[in-house]
Design a protein around this nucleic acid. Sequence first.
DNA 1: GCCAACGTTGGC
DNA 2: GCCAACGTTGGC
Length: 144
Amino acid sequence: MPLWLMKSEPETWSWDQQVSKGTEAWTGVRNHQAAGFLKAMQVGDRCFFYHSNTGKAVVGIVTVVRGAYPDPTDPAGRFVCVDVAADRPLPFPVPLARIKEQPELSAMMLLKQARLSVMPVTGPEWDVVCRMGGCQALRERAPG
DNA sequence: GCCAACGTTGGC
DNA sequence: GCCAACGTTGGC
């Protein structure tokens, strides 16, 4: 069961906006490694929603509601996007600083590849972050 | 505001 | 095909 993390600058697209809108196309990824992860996503997969730059915290969970399709914002038509829907907030957002303090999270791709905007999260990492965020650790795929 | 990491571009 | 220059991301 794949689990993911997606980054967004809150000035560009925030968790609050995601909650207000419900479902949103996750466009603008222009990195081939990140695009590969988008292509691997399946409907129902869960993703952490991470605020980069001014936020620097995992703030919520979204679910994939449409698998990879051509990104309408890419004029060349080479990159893909997915649609995600807000699932639930983390009652206590988990800051990057706290992730760095956790020995169990020391191998997270978030820490290893700072510039990657879409990445997989392991099951144990998922559970630890959920626990830190005061959220039930739902790993299983969301119902359709 | 600075800088490290790193992907891309372009000259050779 | 190499590599320097440059642009972008994102933490600090």
